[in-house]
Nucleic acid binder design. Structure first.
Lengths: 201, 201, 201, 201
DNA sequence: AATGAATGAGCATTCATTCAT
DNA sequence: TATGAATGAATGCTCATTCAT
C-alpha cells in the first residue's frame, strides 16, 4: 500500500537484477531475490516482466558490455601507427583488473547463452561490436581470431584466479596481427590464403 | 526395490548424472532427476553423495574430457614434421562436429566453475592436460595461447551456431605457432621474447 | 490502446468471455484471459464488470442456449400428428453432433450452478424454456421427464465419448411420451395419476 | 519435526481431500487446503501425490459412490415380482435426502469429467455399476435409459433446490420399464424394436 | 548399509481487485 | 470515463536435505 506510484519502478527492478547477478550469478536470480534487492513487492517483478527470462534479457542488454567499452577506451583503432597488440593487451588487463563480479557477470552471460537461446543475440552483439571495430584495422578473419584469443585468455584468467600476464597476451595477439592482410611481413598468410571473412553471419 | 546389494550403484548414479547434465544442463541436475535416470531410489543418491556438489564433481571428473581426447587422437605431437596447426584445426573440427550436448557439457563446466570454486580444479586439469601435451612441441606460453585460441574459437562456434571454418582456425593457429620458440622462421617471436611460462600452474 | 470511445466495448468483452469458456472451460476464465481475447486493456474488464462472477453471468445469459435452440428448430410442437419422440431424438442428435466445446459450455454451466447459486437462475431458465414448450403438447410432468431423460442421455454421451444412438433415444423418449396425459393408449399413465406439475418453477 | 513417521499419512490426506471437495467443491481443492484440512505440512501432499489430479482421482475413486450404494440397498433386483420403478424412485429419494455436500460431490465429479479426461473412467465405472446391475432385470437399452433418467432427475433437483417428487419419478421410471423387453404389455416396444444394447462400450 | 518418508524453503507464475491519475 | 500500475494472496510444484527404521 505504501509505495504506490513509482514511475521508475521498472528501471529499479532491472538495476536490482544486475546487482543480484553480479553478486550471486545467474543462478541466484529469482523473482524473490530481485524483489528483495529492489525493495519492491514480489508481484511487481512479475507485473513488469512476464517471465524471468524477459527480466534477464532486459538486465543483460543494459549492462554496458564493459569488455567492449574497455577495449574501445584503450585502443586507438584509427591510428595505424599504434601497436595494436599492446593496446589490446592493456585493455584486457584493465578489464580483468576490474570488479570480479562484473567480469563474471559478463562471462557468465556469454556461457549461459549456450543453454538459453534467448541470450544468444546479446552475446553475439557484444562479440560483433568488438569484431567490427577491429575490422577497421585488420581483415575480418584476423579480427575474429583476435576476439577469440582474448575470450580464451580471459576465460583462463577467470578460471584460474591467476594473475593476468600482459606481456604474454601482447605476444600472442601480436602474432595473430602480424599475419593480417596488409600487415608487413605476414609470414604465413600466403600459404593459407586467409579467407575474407570466414565466420561472417 | 529389491535391488539391494548393488555394488555398481555408485557408478550407475554417476553415469546417470552425466547423462542428465548432457541432456538438460547443470541446472537440470537434482537428486530426483538423477535417481529417476539411474532407476535408483531417491535416498540412494543422497546416501552415496553427501551433497549435490559432490555428485557433480564426481560426474564431471569422470567425463572423458572429450575435448582433450579428441586433440590427443588427432595430433601427432611426437612427430616434429607434422603440420601442428592443421592437426589442431582438424581436431577442433572433429570435436565440434560431435554431439552438441557433449560440447555444451564441457563448456558448461567452465560456466559453473566461474561460480563454484570446487569445480575449478577440474576445469584447470582439462586445460592443463592439453597445454602440457602441447608443451612437448612448443614453448609453454605458446601452448597456453593455442589453448586459449581454441577455447575462444569453440565458444564462438557454439554461441553463433555458425559453421566451423577449419581453414580459418588453421590460419590463426598457424600464426601463433609460427612464433613459437624454436619454430623455423618465427618472424615476430624474437622481439617479444615470449616468457617461459607465464600462466603455468 | 487508443481505442477510447468504444461503445461496443462491453459487448466485445462478453463475446470474448464466451469464447474463452468455450475453449478452456469456466476455470480458464479470468480478467486477463478475457482482456487478451477481447484485445482490450485489463482495466477495462474490471471497469465494465464489478466482478468475475458478474461477467460470467452476463456471458452465460447470452449464450444462445444452443440446446433449446436446436430443439425448437427440430421439433414441430404445434403439429399434434408429428412423431414427437422422433423429432426430439433427432434434435438431440443434431446438438450432440455440433461443436464439442459448445456442448461442454452448456453442461459446464450446470456444473458451475451446483456451487454458484448466482448461476442457478440461468440454468433453470434454459430447462424451463424447453419444458414449457413441450408442455404445449404433453402434460407438465411428462415434459419434465422428457427433459430429464434428454439431459441424462446427453451427459452419458459426453462422458463416454460413445456414439449417440438415435434409435435408442427415440425408443426411450417414446415410452415416456406414450404415457402422457391425452396420449392415445397410454398404458400406465392412469394408475400413477401423473401430478399436475411436480417440479414446475 | 513433530509428527514424523505417520504411516496413515497418505490415507489421511485422501480423507481430507474428500472433506474439502464436499465442502468447497472441486474448485476448492488445492495442496494448501488439503494440507490444512489434514493437519499436515504442505510438502507432504506433494510427496504422496505427484499432482493434484492424482490426488483428486485417488479421493474420488475412494468415495463410495453413494448413489450406486443407495440403489443397491433399496432395490431388490433378484425379485422379479417387486415394483422396480417404485424401488428406484425410493432409492433416488433416499440419495437426494442425504447430505447435500455428498450429492454435490458425486455430481460435480460427474460433470467435471467433461473437462478432465482422467476423471472419466471413474464416472464411467459408477454408471456402469448401476447399469449392469439393472441389466439383470431388464434389457441393456432400458437399463441405460433408466440410469439416464435418474441422472437427469437428480440434476434438476440439485439445480433447483426444489423438493424431490417421488411419485413423479416412479411414474416416469415406470413408463421406461414398462417398455422393456419381456415386460408384460410393453406398449411401444414393438414398433421401435429396441436394440439389444445400443450404448454398450 | 540402505531407503522411504518427511518437511520447510523456495520457485515461477497467475490472479482479483484496488487505486491514482 | 477509462486504464495502467500496483500488490498481496494464492497456486502447483520442485528441491536438498534430514532421519527413523
Amino acid at each position: 500500500m505504501a509505495r504506490r506510484y513509482d514511475p521508475e519502478r521498472r528501471q529499479r527492478i532491472i538495476d536490482a537484477a544486475i546487482r543480484v547477478v553480479r553478486r550471486e550469478g545467474i543462478g541466484g536470480l529469482s523473482h524473490r531475490s530481485v524483489a528483495a534487492e529492489a525493495d519492491v513487492p514480489l508481484g511487481s517483478t512479475t507485473y513488469h516482466f512476464a517471465s524471468l527470462d524477459e527480466l534477464l534479457v532486459a538486465a543483460l542488454r543494459q549492462t554496458n558490455a564493459s569488455f567492449s567499452d574497455t577495449v574501445f577506451r584503450n585502443v586507438r583503432l584509427d591510428d595505424p601507427d599504434r601497436d595494436l597488440a599492446a593496446d589490446l593487451a592493456r585493455a584486457l588487463g584493465q578489464w580483468l583488473a576490474g570488479d570480479r563480479g562484473t567480469n563474471e557477470l559478463e562471462y557468465e552471460l556469454y556461457l549461459a547463452a549456450l543453454r538459453k537461446p534467448v541470450l544468444r543475440p546479446i552475446a553475439q552483439e557484444w562479440v560483433a561490436s568488438v569484431t567490427e571495430a577491429l575490422a577497421r584495422r585488420v581483415d575480418p578473419a584476423t579480427a575474429h581470431g583476435v576476439v577469440a584469443l582474448m575470450d580464451g585468455v580471459s576465460l583462463q584468467v577467470l578460471l584460474t584466479d591467476r594473475e593476468y600476464d600482459e606481456a604474454y597476451a601482447r605476444t600472442m595477439l601480436g602474432r595473430l596481427l602480424a599475419g593480417a592482410d596488409g600487415a608487413a611481413g605476414a609470414p604465413d598468410g600466403g600459404e593459407t590464403g586467409s579467407p575474407a571473412d570466414p565466420v561472417a553471419g
